[in-house]
Structure formats: C-alpha cells, structure tokens
Simulated assay, not measured.
Amino acid sequence: MSRTTTPFGFHSTASEVLRSVDLSGKRAIVTGGASGIGLETSRALVNAGAEVTLAVRRPEAAQQAAPELRAANRGDVHIAALDLADLASVRQFTRQWSGPLHILVNNAGVMAIPDLQTTAQGWEMQFATNFLGHFALANGLHHALKEAEGARIVSLSSSAQLLGPVVFDDLHFRFRAYEPWAAYAQAKTACALMAVEATRRWQHEGIFANAVHPGAIATNLQKHTGGLKTPVERRKTPEQGAATSVLLAASPLLEGVGGRYFEDCNEAVVVDRRTPDFTGVAPYAIDAANAKRLWEVASQLMGMQV
C-alpha cells in the first residue's frame, strides 16, 4: 500500500485545500465545531457549500459563531447539543438526526486533565471523551453515513500517539497510577485505531475513515497544560491546523482512501521509535489487530453487538 501524498503541506490552510471543491448538497457534522480548529474546519466546509451542524457541549456559546459562518452565503449552519462524555447525550443526538450524512469530523476533545476524572460509567475522562464518545457517535450515525452513498469520517488524533499505546488491560487507570499525558496518549492512539477498523468494516458501504494530527495550535485545548511547549517553527495557526481535517473530509484527492493517519496534509511515515520532532505514526496506532480488538472492547463497554 503506497503512501498517500498531496500538493499541500505544513503551511497550507483549510481554505486553500478546499479552494476548488464544491460541497453543495453535502451534510456535515463537526464536533466542537464552534471554537479553535473546529471552527476553522466548519468555516471551510460552509464556504465550500456544505450544510454543517456544530455539535457542541454548550450550544449557547456556539450561537456567537453561527452568524459569522452563515455570512458566507454558501452552506447552512445548525447548532446541536452534544456532550461526548455523556452517552445519553450522544444517543439523543443520533436519534434526532435524520437523512444522509456525508462528513463526520470527530474534532472535539480534552487534553491532559491533571487529576483522574471518570464518567458515570467509571470510564477515564480523556478516553471517554476523545474516543468512546466519538465511537458511540459514529456507530449511532452509521445508518446516515451509509445513506450518503459515499461518506467520510475524520478522526482527530495527535502526535501524542507517539507517547504510548492503548493499554487494554487497564484502560481506565484502575491499577496503574494516573498520568495525564499517558491518558491523553492512549485516547489519541485509540482515535487513530478507530479510523482503521471503521474503514475495514464499512468501506463496502462507501464509508472511509482517516485519522489526523492537526499540528500544534494554541487553542483552549491546552488549558490544563500551561500553553504550547512546541518550538515556534512547528506551530500552526488554527486555519493551518484545520487544513488536514478538511483535506480528509472533502478533497477529491482522498477519494477511496481510508484507515490511514495524516499530518501536514500528507500520510505520515510509520516510525520505529519516537522522533525528536514528534512526526510520524507509531506502528501500534495503525495496527489492524489492535484496531479490531479496540472496536470489540468499546462495543462491549457500550453493550453493542460487535
């Protein structure tokens, strides 16, 4: 399987990536789509003509972003409540959705929560929010993605996948000591693996999923970390950070491509050890056996049929 490359790169912006793309008639959901790179992802999709639903934890806050997005006079914008850490909220969202869904951008997330927090089910919060909530969302919207007869899922991962794998024997830190970055790494590795298995299971229905590392961007995501620690030359603007997401979501260059991990608008190189500049993807983060096992474990946690 050859590595997928494009004419775009580190400095490309979301608007540049979709400059000649027409998404009229396409429907998209962007979780966390009213702030940070989620907002820039939503903006690029709307400007290309898509109907975009901002799936957010605080709909009242998103109301401030909607008029600006609608001003493009291209695609339409909707706002819907979604708390990824609350399965009841996820299920309510998916039950209310009707009609086809062409693009699902699993963008929302939390990073490096200092102390162990768990959901009502006892699941570690970063794993639950970043991965399990999006897993439940994608499965709940499977019928809508299938109805689109050509759909894409974008799973926001991170270079943090290079910090460690999914620890299947202790997903929720019930035995090992909680460490914020270990929890974040596990969650983001899980997001990459989700794209691998979703593609394997659903590509015959025209559904393809890919994972993305958006880059180092100063957003509210770093509120627990004291801000970016990345060297200035490796930092991106929010619009540059959204470029790879919208490339995977809508570019014709990625037609029929799935189960891969992208950074800087190109498929990442598989590395055999952590690189100094945190580029590349670890083998365990795209391993088919790991992806299948994770899907089965997540399904069991939620009482779903595998």
Rank of each mutant, 00 (worst) to 15 (best):
T53I: 14
N106W: 01
P59A: 08
D86T: 14
D83V: 15
T129L: 03
A138P: 07
S35I: 12
A136M: 11
A55F: 09
D86M: 09
N139F: 06
I103G: 11
A55T: 07
H142I: 15
E51G: 14
W97D: 12
A88G: 14
W97Q: 12
Q64A: 15
W123M: 07
Q63P: 10
F135K: 11
D76R: 10
M111W: 03
R74A: 10
A61R: 12
N106T: 03
E68V: 15
N139M: 02
A48V: 07
P114H: 10
Q117K: 13
V110H: 08
T119G: 05
F93Q: 00
N130E: 13
A112S: 11
V105G: 04
N139T: 10
L84W: 01
V56R: 00
V52G: 04
A112I: 10
H143M: 13
M125K: 09
Q117P: 10
A55N: 03
L82T: 12
G133K: 02
R95T: 09
R58Q: 14
Q126P: 09
L101F: 05
T118F: 04
G122E: 07
Q121H: 12
A128L: 05
Q126W: 00
L104D: 04
E60G: 05
L39W: 08
F93C: 01
K146W: 03
P67Q: 03
V46D: 03
A80W: 07
L145V: 06
L82N: 00
A88M: 11
I113W: 02
F131Q: 12
S42H: 01
W97Y: 14
F127S: 07
F93M: 09
N73R: 14
N106G: 06
I37S: 04
T41V: 01
E124T: 01
P67N: 06
Q126H: 08
R91P: 08
G49S: 08
T129M: 03
G122L: 12
G33T: 01
G75T: 04
R74T: 05
L116T: 08
H143A: 15
L39Y: 12
G33P: 07
N73I: 05
Q64E: 14
G140Y: 11
D86I: 14
R57E: 15
L39R: 06
R91F: 10
Q63Y: 10
F135I: 01
L82F: 13
I37A: 04
H142T: 13
F135T: 08
V56W: 02
L141K: 03
